[in-house]
Design a protein around this nucleic acid. Sequence first.
DNA 1: ATTCGTGAGTACAGTTTCGATACCCATATT
DNA 2: AATATGGGTATCGAAACTGTACTCACGAAT
Lengths: 157, 157
Amino acid sequence: MKWDDLDAQPCSVARTLAVVGDRWTLMILRDCFLGVQRFDDFQHRLGLSRALLADRLKALTDAGVLERHAYQTRPERFEYRLTPAGIDLHPIMLGLADWGNRHLADDRGAPLLYRHKTCDHDFRPVTTCSHCGEALDARSVAVRPGPGFPDPRAARR
Amino acid sequence: MKWDDLDAQPCSVARTLAVVGDRWTLMILRDCFLGVQRFDDFQHRLGLSRALLADRLKALTDAGVLERHAYQTRPERFEYRLTPAGIDLHPIMLGLADWGNRHLADDRGAPLLYRHKTCDHDFRPVTTCSHCGEALDARSVAVRPGPGFPDPRAARR
DNA sequence: ATTCGTGAGTACAGTTTCGATACCCATATT
DNA sequence: AATATGGGTATCGAAACTGTACTCACGAAT
């Protein structure tokens, strides 16, 4: 399977990764959530090549995750903003940050701290069930592939 | 910045991505959560090259996300299992699947369905505050970079 | 006793992608 | 006129990835 075929898979994880599963894409999105909006700011903060940054920003824009917005004319200058779909990626960012905080923390520098403005406390994200509100753990979740999805064990003869 | 330098960054998102932020790595982990454990099963299901699969499995093992476990001797055969740290990635997988379900659903096939065994209902993952238990949205979260983390706007003069 | 099949890889050539560096263009400032 | 700013392209060598083939250790089938 080629990378470009990922979004043709009948799997939501694969299709999401086809949009945001790139090395740099997720770093760009991290910066978006930190308020970065401009081409050169992304480039200076991330240090990736300008060609690649242009490519990724275009891909994210085409995917509807970012939108390109002119903040001045003559000369035209643009900033990139998260769309509602982009903002919906926030739980994934929180998940990535939380995993890093818990499993990769060390003396190289303090990680990000998140504060819930509503209750004014630092927090860890807890993933809960939308039906009963209970915290989820991997063992209490059953995955049911929809029709057409290859059975996990089908590859074994 | 080179990809290998990511884990030196004082940012938990970057450090997590240094471990799991690769195209194939997240697909491998998706399959792990679906119960796939053996080399050839990964290879058949994902269709990536054997060399790359061997490399990624080794990297995940070295990172403590998977562990390599001999399930027979003569000849030695191994399976790869999620460690507790690997299981902790589950909320991220749920987040990826949920985003795909909501933003990339189409007629190419049914996405994954998740059921909470405890309450026996299909659910969507809801990310909540560990302190007050309320559902989080991006606007109610303030990020406070730890010491040494570059200010989001520092790149702008 | 040879051949076939399985599981878990390694080796290598060819292609694709990426990174570094340089360059372009329109405008504003000195 | 020279320089700075913002947002990009162009080019080329280096690195990563893919496809195909091969290995090795064993077990079963012919």
